[in-house]
Measured scan of single mutants.
Amino acid sequence: NKFNKEMRNAYWEILLLPNLNEQQKRAFIRSLYDDPSQSANLLAEAKKLNDAQA
């Protein structure tokens, strides 16, 4: 399933972002589970926040 693969990839990438705190990571991951079809958008948002907090 395409969404499962995308979601899994986004999950691990979000977990490994160094500048997000645990609460932020949990919020993004919760959103991933709520709507896996938004994986790419959520990952992009997480990366943007990660860069902003660098």
Score class of each variant (00 low, 15 high):
M7F: 15
Q23A: 13
D51R: 15
Y33P: 01
A27G: 07
E45I: 14
N21K: 07
A27H: 07
I14P: 00
A46F: 01
P36L: 03
L49I: 09
A44H: 10
L32D: 00
A10Q: 02
N41A: 07
A40E: 06
P18L: 08
Y33K: 03
A40I: 08
N9W: 13
Q38V: 05
R26I: 05
A44Q: 09
N19D: 07
N50S: 06
E13L: 15
A44L: 10
S31W: 11
L43K: 10
I14W: 00
Q53E: 10
R8D: 04
L20K: 00
W12T: 06
S31F: 10
N41E: 05
N1A: 02
L16W: 10
S37M: 12
E13V: 15
Q38D: 08
N9T: 10
L32A: 01
A40P: 09
L49G: 02
A40F: 14
E22P: 13
N4K: 03
K48S: 09
F28Y: 10
A46L: 02
L43H: 03
N4F: 10
I29Y: 09
K47F: 13
S37F: 09
P18W: 05
I29K: 03
L43N: 04
F3T: 11
K5A: 03
L49M: 10
N19K: 08
A27M: 14
P36M: 04
I14Q: 00
Q38L: 11
K47L: 06
I14T: 02
E45T: 13
L16N: 14
N21Y: 15
K25S: 03
L17K: 04
Q23P: 10
N1Q: 04
D35L: 10
D34R: 14
A46K: 00
S31R: 14
L20T: 01
R8K: 07
K48M: 11
N50K: 01
S31Q: 09
L20G: 00
L49V: 07
I29H: 05
F28L: 05
L16P: 02
F3V: 09
A44V: 08
N19P: 00
N1D: 14
N41L: 13
M7K: 01
D34N: 10
L15I: 08
F28Q: 01
I29T: 12
I14E: 00
A40S: 11
R8Y: 11
L43W: 05
N41S: 10
Q38T: 07
K5P: 05
